[in-house]
Measured scan of single mutants.
Amino acid sequence: EEWMVEKALMVRTGLGARQIESYRQGAWIEGVHFKRVSPSGESTLRGTTWYNYPEINKFIR
Rank of each mutant, 00 (worst) to 15 (best):
E1C: 10
E1D: 12
E1Q: 09
E1W: 09
E1S: 10
E1N: 10
E1K: 07
E1I: 08
E1M: 08
E2W: 09
E2R: 07
E2T: 10
E2L: 08
W3K: 01
W3I: 00
W3D: 00
W3P: 00
W3S: 01
W3Q: 01
M4I: 15
M4F: 05
M4R: 00
M4V: 13
M4H: 02
V5L: 15
V5S: 15
V5P: 13
E6A: 10
E6W: 05
E6T: 06
E6F: 09
E6Q: 09
E6H: 06
K7A: 15
K7W: 12
K7V: 09
K7H: 12
K7G: 10
K7D: 14
A8Q: 13
A8G: 06
A8W: 10
A8C: 12
A8N: 09
L9R: 01
L9I: 08
L9E: 00
L9W: 02
L9F: 04
L9H: 01
M10S: 07
M10P: 00
M10A: 06
M10G: 04
V11K: 13
V11D: 13
V11P: 03
R12Q: 07
R12G: 03
T13A: 04
T13C: 05
T13E: 02
T13P: 01
T13Q: 02
T13N: 01
G14P: 02
G14C: 06
G14H: 05
G14M: 04
L15T: 00
L15P: 00
L15D: 00
L15W: 07
L15I: 04
L15A: 00
G16M: 10
G16Q: 12
G16I: 09
G16V: 10
G16T: 15
A17M: 09
A17W: 10
A17T: 08
A17H: 12
A17E: 08
A17P: 11
A17L: 10
A17C: 07
R18E: 14
R18D: 15
R18H: 14
R18G: 12
Q19Y: 04
Q19S: 05
Q19N: 04
Q19V: 06
I20S: 00
I20Q: 01
I20V: 06
I20C: 02
I20R: 00
I20N: 01
E21L: 08
E21F: 07
E21R: 12
E21W: 10
S22L: 14
S22V: 13
S22F: 15
S22G: 08
S22D: 12
S22P: 01
S22C: 15
Y23Q: 03
Y23N: 03
R24M: 15
R24K: 11
R24W: 03
R24L: 14
R24Y: 04
Q25M: 13
Q25N: 14
Q25S: 10
Q25G: 08
Q25H: 10
Q25E: 14
G26S: 14
G26L: 11
G26Q: 10
G26C: 13
G26I: 08
G26R: 09
G26V: 08
A27N: 07
A27H: 09
A27Q: 11
W28R: 01
W28I: 00
I29V: 11
I29F: 05
I29E: 07
I29G: 03
I29S: 05
I29Q: 08
E30T: 03
E30D: 06
E30W: 04
E30Y: 08
E30P: 05
G31M: 04
G31F: 05
G31N: 07
G31P: 02
G31R: 03
G31K: 03
V32C: 04
V32N: 03
V32A: 03
H33V: 01
H33Y: 02
H33S: 00
H33G: 01
H33T: 00
F34T: 02
F34D: 00
F34M: 03
F34I: 03
K35R: 09
K35P: 01
K35G: 03
K35E: 04
K35L: 08
K35A: 06
K35W: 05
R36G: 06
R36V: 15
R36N: 15
V37T: 10
V37P: 06
V37G: 09
V37I: 11
S38G: 13
S38V: 14
S38R: 09
P39V: 14
P39I: 13
P39E: 14
P39M: 12
P39K: 08
S40F: 11
S40W: 10
S40C: 11
S40E: 14
S40G: 12
S40L: 11
G41E: 11
G41N: 10
G41H: 09
G41R: 07
G41M: 08
E42S: 10
E42F: 07
E42W: 05
E42R: 05
E42N: 11
S43I: 09
S43F: 06
S43W: 04
S43C: 08
T44L: 10
T44W: 09
T44D: 15
L45M: 11
L45P: 10
L45E: 14
L45T: 13
L45K: 09
R46Q: 15
R46K: 13
G47A: 13
G47W: 13
G47S: 12
G47C: 11
G47E: 14
G47H: 10
T48S: 07
T48I: 14
T48R: 07
T48N: 07
T48G: 08
T49G: 03
T49H: 09
T49S: 04
T49K: 03
T49N: 06
T49A: 05
T49Y: 15
W50H: 06
W50M: 13
W50C: 11
W50N: 03
Y51C: 01
Y51P: 01
Y51M: 01
Y51S: 00
N52Q: 02
N52I: 02
N52P: 00
N52Y: 06
Y53P: 01
Y53D: 02
Y53T: 02
P54F: 12
P54Y: 12
P54E: 12
P54V: 14
E55L: 07
E55A: 10
E55Q: 07
E55K: 05
E55G: 02
E55H: 04
I56E: 00
I56D: 00
N57C: 15
N57Y: 14
N57Q: 15
N57A: 15
N57S: 14
K58Q: 07
K58E: 09
K58A: 10
K58D: 08
K58M: 07
F59T: 04
F59D: 03
F59N: 03
F59H: 05
F59W: 15
F59A: 04
F59I: 05
F59G: 03
I60H: 03
I60V: 06
I60N: 03
R61V: 13
R61G: 09
R61E: 13
R61A: 13
